[in-house]
Nucleic acid binder design. Structure first.
Lengths: 353, 353
DNA sequence: TTGAAAGCGCTAACAC
DNA sequence: GTGTTAGCGCTTTCAA
């Protein structure tokens, strides 16, 4: 039952229009497709016939012959995460302006889901793929995409060993600045908390599964080192997904930590709740800072000092790069690093003791 | 340059595999496509050849002959809006489980963008469309979708005159309950604020552009009427996008309103900020309630009493319905109404004086 | 179980 | 300016 749809109705094709307009298929296709030339009379006749019959182009057939689908795939961790939603919107706007649509897939940060997503997109012959790689250190799930020769652009995270364009925020500088702020306020015992999985305790130089978290940790360490603080690695607490942010924060409190750098606003949110339950005031009991200017950070009491990321721009820039590649730009790979922006609010105070 | 990609490499096809395995194209296609029968020996040979050559199926070609694309389109107002992001995730999960992918389009609540989105999706021959209609009262932008005969399911909002499945939340009951809470606390002057556009002042019975807002207003009015409050329409303030939530809230304060029902959490957020600027305490100066359990509503001081919606479920249920239709379910249209859930927090107190 | 051939709706040469 | 023809990569009769 090809071309028919479930309801049995058959779609109107170029041939139908051509017949109705009494011209050849090629001519009808030329005016309908807006390419080639045609006399005004013929053009009118064809358009009238198309209108009359309710002709709707079949983009798939076009793709079959041209090789271009005008759609690009985007693989995010989870579209429900505001970060990805904003980046996706940025990408969608740029894509739409250039005539592309987005096929959206969630990886949940799992390599196998990511690999599967790539397969699906390749099968649908997307013109290019945008992805926030689930793993920086082992991006093998993306190899099919690379092998396919189709343009691939990474955003938010880089991927080791892949020679592709990337767009990320300057997480290291951002983390450095955020931590500096805490140290300048007099803190000596400040912790960095992330949900990222990591075997054993963190040691300086360890590579993390996500370059953005890795860069944040590096910036955090930079700051402590510059301040002459001994053994900075002991202040880095990972595996918060496994262990629970709540548990980790309680432990930090017991250890006498006086300030916390949350690796993302979800962690900050959990920490905020735990501190409230513990009856510890922010910032007088403990100072708290985080990444991303999430809604709640300016509405909470106190409002949270954050390092905002140009999220929309990250997605938009990635899409721009991808589209340029699709158009055949053979320039060497580009690694765009966008600046973060500090928003100082009320969650930092000198340490208590 | 058909079938070649930008880089000039040609994709491996069924024919290539068939040749390598020394079988006919049909046979190779049968084993590769997992349909029809084949002897074990042949099957192995074909699979080995496919593996060897790096065969990747072309889903588009398959769609061309079968008429099924295994992709569904989803048109949302704005993916950056957490409501749509969550609903999209719900739909994506159900879709993925059934073997479908999502093509995502933003309408920005504009009819022309919506109409254009429908066109694109129809051209890409999606198997069905999910849409949160930009307009309940004039859904003509969706007529092409309806005419196409392809399944269409609406979520979050209904559309007048369209005989299609819909999935919405019980906004009227939710608004009624939320408003009742305020009246029970002793409020007599409570306002409802929405960004929806509307010509002139609201009058009871006016139809609004969005059924969800319309239902909320209706529930609000129900409550006031039940309490014997005169002329409830005067407490309904629309056009907040045009006039600014800030301006409207200030005016309400001047008018001596003692409680506000925000039509969504973005409005509540703006109102929260304005009241803070005005130095009016919540709930002692003014009580505030809203829809949607947004992050900030539980972290703000005070935490906001909200009517939560089963957002994920709305998207999931819509996708479920759509997929059932795609499978050929000819049952009469279904209008699913999902219950909302009250979360009482700290933003209601008896009126001041 | 396997193969040959036709066709999905379109574009792209190439001729006239 | 217009028509003819040959594909794109797959599935689907229909025979063998």
């Amino acid at each position: 039952m090809p071309a028919d749809h479930v309801n049995g109705r058959r779609e109107v094709t170029v041939s139908d229009v051509a017949a109705a307009a009494k011209v050849s298929k090629a001519t009808a296709a030329r005016v309908l497709g807006g390419y080639g030339a045609a006399s005004e009379a013929v053009r009118d006749r064809v358009q009238a016939a198309a209108e009359e019959l309710g002709y709707r182009p079949n983009a798939l057939a076009k793709t079959m012959t041209t090789g271009r689908s005008n759609s690009i795939g985007i693989i995010v961790g989870d579209i429900e995460n505001p970060f990805f939603a904003q980046a996706t919107r940025g990408a969608a706007d740029v894509a739409k302006a250039a005539g592309y649509d987005l096929i959206l897939l969630n990886s949940d940060e799992h390599a196998d889901a990511e690999e599967n997503a790539v397969s699906v997109l390749l099968a649908k012959r997307v013109d290019g793929i945008l992805v926030a790689p689930a793993s920086t250190t082992d991006p093998s799930a993306l190899s099919a995409a690379v092998d396919s020769g189709r343009p691939l652009v990474l955003f938010d995270r880089t991927a080791d060993g892949l020679d592709v364009d990337t767009v990320v925020a300057d997480n290291r500088a951002g983390a450095r600045r955020l931590t500096d702020l805490l140290l300048e306020a007099g803190h000596l015992r400040v912790a960095f908390v992330s949900t990222i999985a990591h075997d054993g305790d963190y040691r300086v130089g360890d590579r993390l599964g996500s370059s953005s978290v890795g860069d944040r940790v590096a910036g955090f360490v930079d700051s402590l080192v510059a301040a002459g603080i001994d053994d900075p690695a002991r202040f880095v607490r990972l595996n918060a997904r496994r262990d629970g942010v709540d548990t980790i924060v309680r432990r930090l409190v017991d250890e006498g930590i006086t300030a916390i750098v949350a690796s993302d606003s979800l962690i900050a949110q959990a920490a905020f709740r735990t501190l409230r339950e513990l009856g510890i005031a922010i910032p007088d009991g403990i100072s708290l800072v985080t990444f991303d200017d999430a809604d709640w950070t300016s509405l909470s009491a106190p409002a949270i000092t954050v390092m905002a990321q140009p999220i929309h721009a990250i997605g938009a820039e990635a899409a721009r790069l991808l589209i340029r590649r699709i158009a055949g730009d053979g320039a060497p790979r580009e690694n765009v690093v966008l600046p973060q922006r500090l928003i100082e609010r009320e969650s930092i105070a000198p340490p208590a003791h």
